Amino acid sequence: MIKTELTTIEGRNPVFEAVAANLPIEKIYISNKAYGSQISKIIAAAKEKGVPFKAVPPDKIDELAKTEANQGIVAVCAEVSYVTVADILNRAKEKQEPPFVIIADEITDPHNLGAIIRTANCTGAHGVIIPKNRSAGVNPVVFKTSAGAAAHTPVARVGNLTQAMNELKENGLWITGADMAGEQEMCDADLTGPIALVVGSEGRGITKKIRAGCDFFVRIPMAGEINSLNASVAAAVLMYEALRQRRLK
């Protein structure tokens, strides 16, 4: 495991998932004006796991929070774990499934990255790979947007994305790029085997160097006047197509 700092996790579902996933939480702060079944559920889980929690005035929550959607609760963490590419591949091996990996190429918007991690978890991807440079990291906004999925989905943050892709290839994965000019529509491509799906940023798409390392490209069929999707939406469509094919196999 590779450690990195993460200041806060905010919002009721993200905090609950962080407790459930045994993330290293130093303390949970709960507004004394916050009520409801989810708050009770978090308190019960914190007691069970031995995680300290404290009721505080709403102003204290606002002081600690880094987003505006804290829902009256903030968990302060010492660190969160990034994994290695090998860890992601081992996860697929343990599940006895063909590896399914998502590569986020220079996704700088933390909301997009959080949404991609959330969908990766929902579709059974074994992990997400991001570059250290020119990319959002797993920060409080990413954690919040992922609805807690970042606590369960392994994320590898690598210094050289090309080297990571080569490591995947050496382990039998095909590198599949998402591109509106791809040679195959997603429904015609075989996404059932060991694959890594590369998603580029909005505007730029997949960078030139990473494109050169892709084995083939797939496109999403379009029927309207607009011929492009938000990066996280495009990633979601392709991930669910991969899940559909894998379930039919």
Rank of each mutant, 00 (worst) to 15 (best):
T4G: 03
E68F: 04
K60D: 13
A196L: 05
I175N: 12
A242K: 03
V85G: 07
N121F: 09
I28S: 07
V74H: 08
K249G: 14
V101H: 04
I43G: 03
I9M: 13
N227H: 14
R211N: 12
P194L: 00
K60G: 00
A236L: 02
R12I: 02
I39M: 12
A223G: 03
G124V: 01
I129S: 08
K49V: 01
P194A: 15
I175P: 10
M186C: 10
P24R: 06
V76Y: 04
Q71C: 02
G205Q: 08
P194H: 06
I9N: 05
G213K: 10
A44Q: 15
V74D: 10
A196V: 06
H111S: 10
T153P: 02
G50Y: 03
R211F: 05
G205T: 01
P24S: 13
A235C: 15
R91P: 00
V19R: 04
A65M: 05
L243Q: 15
V155F: 10
V51A: 05
A20L: 14
L161T: 12
D59W: 02
A46N: 06
F16V: 00
T162H: 05
V128S: 11
S135R: 08
V83I: 12
V233I: 14
I88N: 09
N22I: 00
P52T: 10
G36K: 04
A234E: 09
E94W: 01
E94T: 10
G124N: 04
